[in-house]
Amino acid sequence: MNPTEDQIYVIIFSTLFLGGLMSTFVIAMVFIHRQRQAQNKQKLEQIKSEHEKTLLNIENEIQQETLTYVGRELHDNIGQLLSLAKLYLGSAKPEKQTEGKETINQVISEVRALSKNLNLDWVESISIEEFISQQLKKIESTGYCNTTLESEFELGELPKDQKLVLIRVIQEILNNAIKHASPDMISVRIWKDENLKKIELKDNGKGFDPSLESSGSGMFNLKKRMETIGGDISITSSPGNGTLIHLLLPN
């Protein structure tokens, strides 16, 4: 074999080698793509199932709270009204009878209002702004602390799952503030910053150390819930300095 033949063989071999290498590369890419596609599908299904699980949990929690609220209303309000109606209707005086009928009418409207709370359809009919306003009014009506709501822009109609999560997260934050922070003031602000929709919840209560494990797990739960709807949460607090929470809504 002379040097010229050698060089020709090298050229033939190089051509075949490069052709083979490229073919292998492209085929490998297709195989890797298939593999990753399957992994991605599995991951998406997992995220979807986690999302559904979270939503289910949230629905359960809201229903539990609603049932507690309904129970309290039945006992403290409707029960009292019915007892009063019984007393009025038991009286022989016609004016008491009339008052008894009016009380019965009041009971009917209270029961109607309560029945609306028993399923989650109210979530669809209420906006987040309305929900926050209702919650703040409830807090104020107990005389626990003052509240303010400032809405700089309309959140608009959100999908039911996002609304459910937001309602639950806001409820949880407000409950935590009342239970643990003893604030004089709770203020909520809805605003937009560089296309990011935000809800700011601020209280001037005791505050806490977010790095502590005891407070961390609850916050982790809130964060995880916000993430399931593509949002996020940021918490700024320190003992004695109140708490500032930003909810970042998905676009």
């Binding site: 890419m29 793509h33 991605n40």
Partner: peptide, 12 residues
């Protein structure tokens, strides 16, 4: 093609 979700959702 092998990393982006938009490509992973499709048949190459």
């Amino acid at each position: 093609l092998i990393t982006h979700p938009s490509y992973l959702n499709r048949n190459p």
